[in-house]
Amino acid sequence: MLVPGTASQPEHGLGLQEKINQMQGSRLGSRRLPTIPSLGRILPGGALLAGAAYSVENSTTLAMALLAGPSGSGAWCSVIGIPDFNVEAAANLGIDLDRLILIPHLDGQWLAVTAAMVDVVSIILTIAPATITGSDAARLRARLRQRGAALITIGAWPQSEAVLSVSENTWGGLGTGSGHLQTRRLKVTAKGHNGRSRSSELSHAELRQSMWPQLSGSDNGKNDRHFIPRVVSA
């Protein structure tokens, strides 16, 4: 006696596996990286997690804002394969340029360079090549978890912890033939790997690392910097 809808057994198996994958956390008590509170609110786990991968769909600013949290508290960051990355905007968002390593041109060695950089820095921003295979992604993921680094990709990434995107953009200050861009409000949506999505409306100023409430009293947080301890195996 067959229940309608369970006719194809393999399909059913795949669906189940998918569900198990989704419910299984990718982590085991992962360490949280310092994150800008306005983004931490919508991320699964409440913050960027060490060893996880995140993808950002359509906004470099948003990706920079994710970097700004760890960078502002002393972590080393790396931007790989993005020649158009504007360091001035990064500096304005609170990324420490002294601890930012840029590798704009990769010579086709994306995986080797990214894997090498995982050993070095705490957080990596990159554009994932479209041709990445599942096994390569899984190996990189294992390395990320082992090293406790986080990966942020612009564009899709298999098995990312969350997919962030800007769904609405509102600009202020610009008229018709007059004024200039001054303010920006954006609606950021984070879709977790379990399918739940949360979104938040925030202003451009809230993306800045110096807008941290706990650091607002100090002089732009420079003195409060502490290095995030990382597991460094010989």
């Binding site: 080393w76 340029l97 930012l100 390593i101 704009p104 990769l106 090498a116 950089m117 050993d119 820095v121």
Partner: peptide
């Protein structure tokens, strides 16, 4: 960090690994 970056430099060349100033 220096050791790791030196390794990447030996893969891509000296001018491929950069820091930036405004």
């Amino acid at each position: 960090i220096h050791h790791g970056l030196a390794r990447v430099q030996s893969m891509l060349g000296h001018v491929a690994v950069l820091t930036a100033v405004v």
